[in-house]
Design a protein around this nucleic acid. Structure first.
Lengths: 182, 182
DNA sequence: CATAATGCGGACAATATCAGTCCGCGTTAT
DNA sequence: ATAACGCGGACTGATATTGTCCGCATTATG
């Protein structure tokens, strides 16, 4: 049928963590390591979210990203559009005007308005987009929170704190945050 | 967002003509020339429609394709699936299980059931597919028929008749059916 | 029976997109 | 001053899309 890219998947997962984390900025490296995904690739995604006004970037040594709005005010559709760039589901080639009986000069009634096939696809696209628009980051976060046991939240916070404190000042001899996992 | 291929567009336009035409089989060459699209490419699409039971093929010299069912009983979704092969909208990478605090061994509660993000995408996909399933080939045909003037139907029939009679027996000195256009 | 027009399938090619890496630039807290 | 950031461009490999071309089997027509 079609394909939402892994960029969207990565972006959504990261934004979910940003929504759950507090007001401390998380860098794209933090988020990549935390989820076991490529940092180089994730670094190409976040600027798109920033330009769309979904996250707020802060440069420098303790910089990173924060949500620019409340999770309730960020819909899945906005995230998808920010990352994928609002590609239409169907790209009508206007084949109706090429019909041989028109001899290269289709009459107005044939090319007027939206192609009937295109119309069906536009309706399908709208149905999909409406569904995505109806779900917010907060909604997804709630679904996730319902499954996690109580200690998970502090586990995550522990990992993040260890990571942030290890960012600067500590020489980090071999690996700076892995021992938290055991 | 995503993309329905031109194969789907070609297929839909062809099936629309097959629905309007009578019980005479139309070849993929007829349909390609009639609509100004590539015959070689169209020839790759029709076997998929045949295997899906949407059209019926007849080989040999006067062969071609007929609809295997009434246009009312062929949904747009069936056509899309037949041509594109039921690709999911979203391909979940199960990122939730890679969270660093799990240390490579995610607990059951984390990977149980469908990922919350995946769930949203499945709902969006279902909304799209439901819309496509609700529209039949006959519905689209009706939309088109409402726009066309009364003489168009006989124009088309004339082109087809000329094309079919020119298929065999006539030496076809230069071009066999173009003068119909004038 | 010979032939020409079918459908079918595989091989091939050109282009685009996706996923991911790498590097250099400017910025900023320590 | 430096190290950790974000940002952007160049580059690469894999895969999908859009075609083209050829050969094979089948079948109505002459």
């Amino acid at each position: 049928m079609a394909h939402l890219t892994v960029s969207v998947e990565y972006g959504l997962h990261c934004l979910l963590w940003l929504a759950g984390s507090g007001d401390k900025p998380l860098s794209s490296r933090d988020l990549a390591d935390f989820q076991g995904i490529s940092h180089s690739f994730l670094a190409k995604i976040f600027p798109k979210l920033e330009k769309a006004g979904i996250v707020q970037a802060s440069g420098g040594v303790r910089g990173g990203y924060l949500l620019a709005r409340a999770p309730e005010d960020i819909s899945v559709l906005q995230i998808v559009d920010a990352i994928e760039g609002r590609k239409p589901l169907f790209d009508c080639q206007e084949i109706r005007g090429r019909c041989a009986v028109f001899g290269g000069a289709p009459p107005e009634w044939a090319t007027d308005g939206v192609c009937a096939i295109h119309l069906v696809m536009l309706r399908a696209e709208k149905a999909m987009r409406d569904t995505l628009a109806s779900q917010s980051l907060a909604d997804i976060g709630q679904t996730v929170a319902k499954k996690a046991p109580s200690h998970f939240s502090s586990d995550v916070e522990g990992w993040i704190t260890a990571r942030l404190s290890g960012r600067l000042g500590k020489p980090s001899t071999s690996s700076s945050g892995e021992e938290v996992l055991s």
